[in-house]
């Protein structure tokens, strides 16, 4: 009797399999928080039948480490900023999109339609989705005036209440800029050493590092921080939602600016659903929804209020991300 039951059950499962496989493709997305919110994932799933499987990364370093470890096999789509394309293309981790299958590309604002960094000849490797900065978030009660220099993250008076993102390149670029190096993307060994010492000095006074947008907000809350080297505008909104009166500052030295894109993993399994996803997020209202929810500039509709693009130090490819990862790991291990 029991045997009969299990045979019947197996038959039932087999019978439903082909139908399920046919209607439900899945797009596996590896991204930062904020690019695949339920607000537009839900409608996308409903309208295309593709399931969305989102994994969040805490840093640029983590995203690369996971992609190269699996040669991209674990994910279909990733979100990377424009400075990373040479490295990802060189390592064979991403492949071009089929632009014919993304009719909504026409919705890109002119300044984002032909970004050179994401193209290789006629091949389109990246689709710009959002831009923003990595500024300073400060507690307005502690700072009546916004901090004007990145030195606030070193000055013991303010740094003792500061938290900093755990990310090699952003920390090194920012510190090199503060030290006045001409090209923070191309450092000599001697400059690396200075940056390293400066970061070790910072480490001695700050409260904590954090990894990821949400983690930053949680660490802010449990550490009683009043200053944060942020991951972007989105954290201002999250902190305000938790009742903190915070402001966002671009210090006089400038802040890192980034343009994030969708890129197609070499190991993508469901290329069709991946194309449907990028086409969907370029459609009418997804960009503005993201701007409202997270404060990033979107790439499809004009962004009122985001007026500091010219004060940003736009991320560019660096001499060696490996070297930067090494320096950062030594900083973290130092006393």
């Amino acid at each position: 009797m029991r045997k009969l039951k299990s045979i019947a059950l197996a038959g039932l499962i087999v019978a439903t399999l082909p139908a399920a496989a046919h209607s439900a493709g899945t797009v596996r997305i590896f991204t930062f928080e904020g690019y695949a919110d339920e607000e537009w994932v839900g409608p996308f799933e409903a309208s295309t039948g593709c399931q969305v499987n989102v994994t969040y990364t805490g840093s640029v370093d983590e995203l690369f480490a996971k992609m190269i470890a699996s040669k991209g096999a674990d994910y279909d789509l990733i979100s990377i900023d424009t400075s990373l394309f040479p490295q990802y293309i060189d390592k064979g981790l991403i492949v071009p999109f089929d632009a014919q299958n993304i009719p909504n590309l026409k919705n890109l604002l002119p300044e984002f339609a032909d970004v050179a960094e994401v193209m290789a000849g006629e091949s389109r490797f990246g689709i710009p989705i959002a831009w923003g900065s990595i500024g300073l978030i400060y507690d307005k009660a502690v700072f009546p005036e916004p901090p004007t220099s990145w030195n606030a993250l070193w000055d013991p008076a303010t740094a003792s209440k500061a938290i900093v993102l755990d990310d090699a390149n952003n920390n090194i670029v920012n510190t090199a800029t503060l030290l006045g190096f001409e090209d923070p993307y191309n450092l000599s060994l001697e400059q690396f050493e200075q940056v390293k010492q400066k970061l070790i000095e910072q480490k001695r006074s700050i409260l904590s590092y954090y990894a990821g947008f949400e983690d930053g907000v949680n660490v802010w809350e449990s550490s009683g921080a009043s200053l944060m080297f942020s991951m972007g505008e989105s954290q201002v909104i999250s902190l305000a939602e938790r009742g903190y009166d915070v402001g966002y500052a671009i210090p006089q030295e400038g802040a890192i600016g980034w343009l994030d894109t969708w890129a197609l993993s070499t190991g993508a399994q469901d290329v069709e659903c991946a194309h449907q996803w990028v086409d969907y997020v370029l459609a009418g209202d997804v960009g503005p929804m993201m701007t409202t929810a997270h404060g990033y500039g979107n790439t499809t509709q004009s962004n009122d209020g985001l007026d500091y693009a010219d004060r940003l130090n736009w991320l560019r490819p660096v001499e060696s991300l490996e070297m930067r990862a090494q320096v950062w790991s030594e900083v973290k291990a130092s006393q």
Binding site: E62, A65, K66, A69, D166, E322, A325, S329, K332
Partner: peptide
Amino acid sequence: RLIFTQFGLAYNW
């Protein structure tokens, strides 16, 4: 934590 950093972030297996 150092081991985690080498595998998860720095990609120096």
